[in-house]
Every structure is written in C-alpha cells, then in structure tokens.
C-alpha cells in the first residue's frame, strides 16, 4: 500500500455515464488484478475506491461511472491535474487457480478489473472466454478491447440491444471453466446459485477508508466477518454466503 500523487493523462467518456481515465505515477504497489485504488477528490471528504482496469509501467487505467457529485467532478478533470491516490489496496484475483481455461463474468462497471485479469491470464497461457452483461448497448464497455486480447466474448443486455436479451447467467456455457466474476451483488448471488464450476468473486461495498481501519465494509463469510477492502474485494466462491 502506498500514498502518492498521480497526474491525469487522459479522461474521456466511453459509454453512458462511464469514463476512462489514464494517470501516471508510482504504480509499484499494485500487485494483482482485482486490486483497487482510493482517490482523494478536491472538496470531498471520503476517497473514491476504483478498481484497476489496466497497468502498463507507470500508467494506470481506471474506468468509472458517474454515480454522484464526486465521480461527476472526477469526470471533469483535465490532463495535467494531480490526484492523491492510495494504491495497492485489497486482495485481488489469484490467477494461479485457473488451469488451461478460465471464464470471466462481468456486469456493468464490474467489467474493468477483468481486463487487467485477462491480460495476466493470457500471459500464463490460459484460454479465456467472457460473459459480460450490461443494461443496454449504450452501457457496454471493453467488449472490443477484450476481444482484441483474444478473449472469446459473449454479451447479454437487459433490453436486448446488444447480444442476448437477458442477464449474464443466461449466457453462461454449460462447460463454464473456473470463473472470475465482478459485478453487482444480485449478479454475484445469481452466479452462486447457478454456476457449477468453482471461481472467485469480487465484491463492492460502501467504504470508509479502503485499507482495513474502519470496519465499514464488512461482509459475513463462511469463515467469519471479512472486510471487503482488506481481505477482499475478491473472495473464493466457496467462502461466500448465499443470501439472495
């Protein structure tokens, strides 16, 4: 974990209310895909946790949705502006659990950390496919980018405007490999109920600190209370308690 100042390189809209920001700075503490950074925004008291979408040397890519005033302000930031980041937070995905095949399962703005993960898996020689769900075509992100990495991508949208009409659970293959999932809680619980294979799931929760101090983001697991920010955000499927 590290606190340091990053400089905005680019910041552009890529889907409905969804932005992609690249920043340069000290990325040395970011060890695994699925980890997140916590961003101090001018005039806002709490930091904003955002998962790492990609990392190339000292360039960090974040994809975030404008859900309130803080992320709206972030979307207005220009090249050259400085941001105070805590980096290397949380326990990310364990890529060593996938053997020769892996399935990525993402919903909405849960998709970004799967991009960095896909790169790591492919580097290890793992064959990767993905099932991605969005509300509609306007919300879809990273479909082409994942395909360009060589990932076999299937999509579902709630309104049918892209791919299959329905949810990610509707496009899971019966031979679903070891999976890595990130998305809204209802999606993760539907997966827990439907997925036959093992896998890992990344959760989100409203956080106070993002590094384990305040106990604000705790969830109950089969081995006791765990902090989403510290022991998580990624948990083994077999640790998660189904309460949908």
């Amino acid at each position: 974990m590290k606190q340091s100042i990053f400089t905005v390189k680019t910041n552009e809209i890529i889907a409905h209310d969804v932005y992609k920001m690249t920043l340069s700075g000290d990325t040395s503490e970011i060890k695994t895909p699925g980890q997140f950074v916590n961003i101090k925004l001018p005039g806002r008291y709490l930091r904003r946790p955002v998962s790492v979408c990609d990392l190339e040397k000292d360039t960090l890519t974040l994809i975030y949705k404008t859900v309130g005033g803080g992320t709206y302000d972030m979307s207005r930031m220009q090249k050259g502006e400085k941001l105070d980041l805590l980096t290397g937070l949380g326990n990310g995905f364990d890529v060593s659990c996938a053997k020769d095949r892996a399935t990525l399962i993402g919903g909405g703005v849960g998709v970004p950390p799967l991009y960095f993960l896909a790169k790591k898996l492919i580097n290890r020689g793992v064959s990767v496919d993905a099932a991605l769900g969005f509300a509609s075509k306007e919300d879809a992100i990273l479909v082409n980018e994942l395909s360009a990495l060589g990932v076999n991508v299937r999509t579902a949208t709630a309104d049918g405007s892209l791919g299959t009409k329905g949810f990610v659970t509707d496009i899971l293959r019966s031979d679903c490999a070891y999976f890595y999932a990130c998305g809204p809680i209802p999606m993760l619980h539907a997966l827990l109920k439907n997925a036959s294979s093992d896998g890992q799931m990344s959760f989100e929760e409203r956080m106070g600190c993002g590094f384990g101090a305040c106990m604000g983001c705790t969830m109950q697991t089969k081995s006791g209370p765990k902090r989403v920010c510290r022991e998580g955000p990624v948990f083994d499927k077999n640790e998660v308690i189904f309460n949908g």
């Binding site: 803080g70 929760e205 409203r206 604000g216 983001c217 705790t218 109950q220 209370p225």
Partner: peptide
C-alpha cells in the same frame, strides 16, 4: 459482527 451494510455514508 455489527450492523448490516451500508454502514458508511459521506457528509
């Protein structure tokens, strides 16, 4: 365990 989440809100 404490209270159910969400248990943090910004002001």
């Amino acid at each position: 365990f404490g209270n159910p989440t969400p248990r943090i809100a910004e002001i």
